[in-house]
Design a protein around this nucleic acid. Sequence first.
DNA 1: AGATCTACCTGGTTGC
DNA 2: TGCAACCAGGTAGATC
Length: 275
Amino acid sequence: MPELPEVETIARTLTPLITNQVVSGVSLLNERTLEGPLPLDLLTGRRILGARRRGKLLLIDLEEQDGAEVRGLAIHLRMTGRLFVFPAGTPPGPHTRAILDFMEGGRLFFDDARKFGRLRVLSPESDKNWAFWNALGPEPLLISGKGFARLFTGRKAAIKSLLLDQSVIAGIGNIYADESLFRAGIAPFAPADQLSEKRLLRLHKCLKEVLLASIEACGSSIRDYRTARGDAGAFQNSFQVYGRGGQPCLACGTTLQSRRVAGRTTVWCPRCQGR
DNA sequence: AGATCTACCTGGTTGC
DNA sequence: TGCAACCAGGTAGATC
């Protein structure tokens, strides 16, 4: 499941493969993969500057062009989306949903087995109506500790459901929510407004540490995620709680508990994450 | 405000 | 071995 570290890794590995490429054509193999009001072929003829990340969104920036409103392409990989660059003439695979062809001959493939992923052509005008984009919360690696703590004042919801809420803070999914809460010693169902500033500062520190360590390891590969070079990440080997329900806590040996919090499978240590 | 449920999807795993 | 049931999970939308 591509979350912040996985999308960051894809942006970094994709950028050298697409920078300065000029789009010569587009193919949309699954209609529902494209969202928003603008058609994909508005990208044709445009030069790519690079790829970057905002939250879990991968953004492909285009060189400015006189008279052209379109400034880029946003890609949300959701659960099973993948991006690869293949040589000219490579045929689509069974899960290929869209292709950008380049003048120099390469093809950027968007593959997505589950069809949850979305592409959206960006322009300043149409972006005004993109609710998800406009509501997106701050970046956890850029916000200050105090700013992070303030996000939760007056919020009675479980801390985990707020970490997952992209309008509160951007880029965190089920893996890094559970892993950061474990490292901070905070129970996932703790009401956010009952956590002291000190504990929220610690959560922010642990969250940044786990995100940076995962980026360092090129992300976590559960099954589908790959970098734009096709490599698996390695951070799944460093999970303390995710996917380990019923197994002993690596810190204290207590059996890790598993239950649904905020609609997601949640694993925590009842001893290390006491309150 | 917040919790919970359903829909969207399909490949992989589990259980009988 | 075959097949049905279940599970993974980000987001939108509905309901209480």
